[in-house]
Structure formats: C-alpha cells, structure tokens
Design a protein around this nucleic acid. Structure first.
Lengths: 224, 224
DNA sequence: TCCTGCGTAATGCCGATGCAATCTTCACAC
DNA sequence: GTGTGAAGATTGCATCGGCATTACGCAGGA
C-alpha cells in the first residue's frame, strides 16, 4: 500500500511516516496543499492522510478538487478539533474517515488497512472477472489480451458494474454513471445497453453474467 | 520518441531542438527547473536531456524529485564541466548518462536511442502484425522485406499504434506521441494522418486494419 | 522552382444511441 | 400448478454526431 501524507508539522510528519513505513506502507509526504495536489494527481496512492490545518488553507478543500479530477482515492482527515461540527464538515467534504489528534498510530494503520481492503477492487487499474479483464487506465475490456470493442454507453455500464463485481449496483447509480446530469433519459435506454452489452460478452465467451435484481438494479459476476 | 529538453541558453536550446527534431524526435523545451518539473510530471516523455547549470539551480536536483514521483524516465545530463567529480555527481544523482559540452548532436541522438531501446527491453526491436514488420531500430516499416516509405507524422502514428497491437490507444496518447506540447493542433490533423497511413498500408496489402474506437481512440490489428 | 509533407475545412457516410413495440421472465396469490 | 401483472429483455428503426476522405493552400527542402 502507498499513501500520501499531507502534514505541515515536520515532527508529526516524521513520526507518522516512520510508524507507517514500519508497517510496510509506502509514504509520500507533502507539506502544503499545492504540493499535495500536484502529487496526488499522479494517482499513485491508495489513500490520502490529510491534516486540516495547513499553511495554505484547510486540507478539506483538497478533496473536492481531487474528486473533480476523478481521483477517487479514499481520504482520512486528521484534526486537532473533536467537535461534532468538525466531524460533520470532514465527512461532508467527502473524507472517508476521520481521526482526532492525538491518536494512536496503530489505529491509523488499522483504518488505512480497512480502507485499502474496502476499495481495493475499485482502485486497481485492472479488474478481472471470469475471462474478462477490464483495464481502467486504457479504458478497454480484454478477453485473452484482445480488446473487446465497446461503444461509449456500453463501456460506461461495464465500468460501473465491474468496479464492484458480485455486488448490486442500483439502477439510479448506473444511470448517473452513464448519463450526464442534464441528459434527460426516458424509456428504457439503459436496459437496451445492458442487453447489447450482454450479447457482446456472450459472443466472446467472457464467462460473465449480468443479473437483474428486480426493482433494485444489476450485478455482474462470473458465470456459474 | 519524445523528450524533454531542459536548457536555459536559447541558442543552445534551439540548435539541439532542431537537430533532434530532424531525427524525428518530438522535443518539449523548458528553460527553468520549475518549468521542467511541471512538464516532466505529465509523464509524456521517453527521456530527459538536462543541462546542469540552470537559472534556478543545479539541474541534477531535479532527478531525485522526479524519482520521488516515481517517474522513472531516463535522464541524460549535460555539463560544461568534465571533471571526474562532476561525472560522479551526475551518476550519483541518478542520471542514466552524461555528456560533456561541447558534444556532437549525433552522439546525443545515439545515446537517446540507446536509452529508449533499453527502456523498452521487454519489447522486441521488431514487431510484426499481419504482413507488416516494424523495425524500431531502423525506424522503418517492412512488407515482404520491402521498406514502406512513411513521412514523419504517419510513421509516428504507426509506431505508437503498433507498440500495442490489438489494444486501444487513446486519442490523447496519440496526440502526445505525435505532437510537442506547444504544437497547436486544431481540427482533425490526426485523423488525416490516420487516413493517409491507412491508404498506404492498403496499397501494399499489409494486412493491417486501423480501427477507430468512437470517442476514445484507435487500435491497430491484423485484418480479419 | 518544383515537390513533398502537412494542416485545414467541406462533404459524405456509417455506427451509436434513444425510443417504442413486442416478447419473456419473475413473484405472488390461489 | 397456474394465472396475472409488472419488470425486464430484445430488436427494428430513425436520428445524429463522429469519423473518413479528399481537395486545397502553404511552407520548407531539394
């Protein structure tokens, strides 16, 4: 696992870095928001540990900027303040977890591991289900190392489903992923895409099944 | 191949740029360390040519910063100093190669090519798709041992596509490979090159197809 | 000066997409 | 087991936008 530690106090940073590295966690360190953003953009990290009080602003302000770049890296916010308001602010801003200083580093490690496990499948840039590999970096589906050509909508559907194999994706979530907010969508356009996608996956014997969950959504899994 | 040239003397920069471009190398130019770092971070380059004496510091200081960002791009350091100490300093700092001014540009080109090949070690010097063989060492396309003459841009397109046969190359990646940063590219210049390249490949019955992936990019593969 | 490479723009074409009609499957009740 | 209604699946069709192609003019090298 590799994380980005954003913390301006040198001593705190050093202590944390040492503790994390002892747990086999790779730590990149940034002391300012500007640096942090530049580094985070590279997308190398499995998690971000973010101090709120930084020389160039509130750490939380980084989160929406990362999200805007489609960096869905989980974020743990650190703060000296323990008030409920601050906790809410942190989670509102999109932090995935929240720790109040002072805290035991073992707890931070534990939470990082938890986040990592939780998001592991979604963050790898390749996911494999059945005989199908989806490469998020190149945005292509591969069967036996051959690209499977998928048009835009179908590809978006597949991307969304394969991020959480075997889990239900609600219909609304799918629509959000496939259509922009201002794209009005009537009728059953989504169903049609699912249908076409299924057909293509069958044609190449991808060993994948897309199941409808009535009144809820769909899930993708290796065919039994 | 695309490189980042970091050199503050305008004349030197201009001469090198011209010489390299004559060898079909795409050159992005930065005059300061700050600029260079910002551009290098984009990860577009196959190599960095780095002058040591720069207005904002010793060029070598860039290398550890790039490594910290896990940019493993090879670096050739240029210097006016030929002392052993300087050579050691350069290699210590992580430069892959080292040249003392003044030097012959042909030598620089040769070393760049060597580095480039080395960084593609996993890849053969020749790739064959359909009836077409592309020889990266001599930078020529062969059909039945007959060289196929391709102008610069078309060859760059082919090189990029054939590196990953049967896989999608995103439009942006193609543009990066074929054009320098400051080359304004409007309209459909890339499309036009693809079209001309296709025509030439068809003319010699190369047995190759270049497919468009709508909204994404292109893919090259043996014709079915 | 001629020639070739290149970028641009106009035009034509085809695939992707949304829609709607029709068929199939599922859950539940009896 | 079976009937029924609702949700889902599939497919043909018209539309639209992106890609392909080609002609043209410019620029740089022979």
């Amino acid at each position: 696992m590799r994380i980005l530690l954003i913390e301006d106090e040198p001593e705190m940073a050093s202590v944390l870095k040492t503790a994390l590295e002892r747990q086999d966690i790779i730590v990149d360190h940034a002391a300012t928001l500007a640096d942090a953003e530049a580094v985070a953009r590279l997308g190398h990290h499995d998690a971000v540990v973010l101090d709120r009080r930084l020389p160039d602003g509130d750490g939380l302000s980084l989160i929406p900027r990362l999200r805007a770049l489609h960096l869905d890296v989980p974020v743990i916010a650190l703060t000296a303040l323990s008030g409920l308001d601050d906790r809410v602010a942190g989670l509102d801003a999109g932090a995935d977890d929240y720790m109040v200083k002072p805290f035991a580093t073992v707890e931070l490690v534990a939470r990082l591991n938890a986040l990592h496990r939780r998001s592991f499948t979604t963050r790898a840039n390749q996911v494999m289900v059945g005989r199908l590999t989806y490469d998020f970096r190149h945005r292509e589906a591969l069967v036996e190392d051959q690209a499977l050509e998928l048009p835009r909508r179908e590809r978006l559907v597949l991307e969304t489903l394969i991020r959480r194999p075997g889990r239900t994706i609600m219909r609304g979530a799918l629509e959000e992923a496939v259509y922009a907010l201002d794209d009005e969508i009537g009728s059953n356009a989504l169903d049609a895409h699912i249908s076409r996608l299924r057909r293509k996956l069958d044609d190449v014997a991808a060993g994948i099944e897309i199941r409808a969950i009535r009144n809820l959504g769909y899930l993708l899994r290796a065919a039994s």
